[in-house]
Amino acid sequence: MGRRNIEPNSILSHRLILPLVCFASCGLVYALLSAVLANSRGRVSEFGRFVEDGAAAENDGGCCRGIQNLELWGAAVKWGSEFKFNDSQGCCNACKAMCSGKDGPCLCDTWVFCGDRKLCGSKFGECWLKKQKDSLAPERQEGAPPGEVVGWTSGLIFGKGEGIIGLETEYGTLHIKLLPDCAPHSVAYILELLALHHCAGCQFYRAESRGQSWDSEGNHIENAAFGPPYALIQGTLEAQGTTFNKLPVEDCPILRRGSVAWIGSGPEFFISLADHSEWKHEYTVFGSVLPEDMHIAEKITTLPTIADVWNHVNVTVLEKPVPLLLRRIQKSHVDEI
């Protein structure tokens, strides 16, 4: 994806069969060579960024990811000394099972697994399930000696009505459900921004409507082009005066209407106004806008823009960037996605 100039086919019988076999064999060889060459070349995405096809591809569906060498604290609801698994996914799923929403509020929002045999020793396999006082400000275990590597892997689970932040603009607040089980590093960064109580410099600077390519529900219209315009609003989430460290590529599902994803390793991001199956698995998705707030994103695409070209891609840039303010959203919007 482009940045602001800074930077997804009988004797007669034998005589007849032989040409057919040769033709089929040649076709198969051609197809294989084409696939190899296509994968080796990669392509330039609709955002002007070179992308190797298939790089960072992930399966769509549920996630169970955590952050290695991190021990989150909190009140234990399941003691790990008596609760063990062979891998972190089992521990994560155990926490999710206590946060299904069928039995009221989440009983577990944090899982901590010890998966390094050398560092964990007798604690290897322990799975601690915990509950935070504040899920948007999880407690860390402090006090480890300098340079000591922690053998624990920790992850968060946000239940219904939890893990929602607001991107406040003059046109309304976009409520975003964060996805820590799919993009834990990304969500950790967002929570750090949230703790600053400001986001000076955060803004939307590019806006493109769905045009004639997608309907109001984000479905691509048959035989229509895939842009421009590209059905998105793009901005940056980097507070002035803070040091930004590139984020790792995490879960990259097919983009849907409302998906919130990083451009490369951030801090530039975009909100998709349509389903973008043509971009395949290119972007880390760390959140999703609640459906009832998508009209705010659509409103931003109607603001005055200026045509520009980024890396040979036609884009439209807002004449006046729209400032963003990150704010906490306490348990609400229970009908979120």
Rank of each mutant, 00 (worst) to 15 (best):
R3A: 12
R4T: 08
I6Y: 14
I11C: 07
S13F: 14
L18D: 07
V21R: 15
V21H: 14
V21A: 11
V21N: 08
V21T: 12
C22I: 15
C26F: 15
C26H: 14
A31Q: 13
A31C: 12
L32Y: 15
L37K: 15
A38S: 15
N39S: 14
N39F: 13
R43G: 07
V44P: 06
E46W: 07
G48C: 06
F50P: 13
F50S: 11
D53N: 12
A55K: 10
N59C: 11
G62D: 11
C63H: 02
R65M: 08
G66R: 02
L70A: 05
E71F: 04
L72I: 03
G74Y: 07
K78H: 13
W79L: 12
S81W: 15
E82T: 15
K84R: 14
N86F: 10
S88T: 12
S88C: 08
C91P: 04
N93C: 10
A94V: 11
A97C: 11
C99L: 03
C99E: 04
G101W: 13
C106R: 04
L107K: 13
L107M: 10
L107Q: 11
D109H: 08
D109M: 09
V112Q: 09
V112F: 10
V112G: 02
F113V: 01
L119R: 07
G121P: 02
F124L: 08
L129V: 03
S135W: 10
R140C: 04
G143M: 11
W152Q: 10
I157D: 06
F158G: 00
G159A: 06
G159V: 01
G166L: 01
T169S: 01
E170Y: 10
E170A: 10
Y171G: 00
G172F: 04
G172H: 00
K177C: 03
I190W: 00
I190E: 02
H197D: 09
H198A: 01
G201I: 01
Q203K: 11
Y205F: 03
Y205M: 05
G211A: 07
S213F: 02
G218K: 09
N219R: 09
H220V: 05
H220M: 02
I221Y: 00
A224P: 04
G227A: 08
G227E: 04
P229A: 02
I233C: 03
G241W: 07
G241L: 04
T243Y: 15
F244W: 06
N245H: 15
N245Q: 14
L247T: 04
P248Q: 05
C252M: 04
R257T: 00
S259M: 03
I263Y: 04
I263N: 06
G266K: 02
G266H: 06
P267S: 02
E268S: 10
F269D: 01
F270Q: 00
K280H: 11
K280C: 01
E282W: 10
Y283Q: 03
S288R: 13
P291S: 08
I296K: 03
I296D: 01
A297S: 06
A297D: 01
L303G: 02
P304K: 09
P304L: 08
T305R: 09
A307H: 11
V309I: 12
H312N: 13
T316V: 07
L318P: 00
K320I: 08
R328V: 01
R328K: 10
K331E: 12
V334W: 15
V334Q: 15
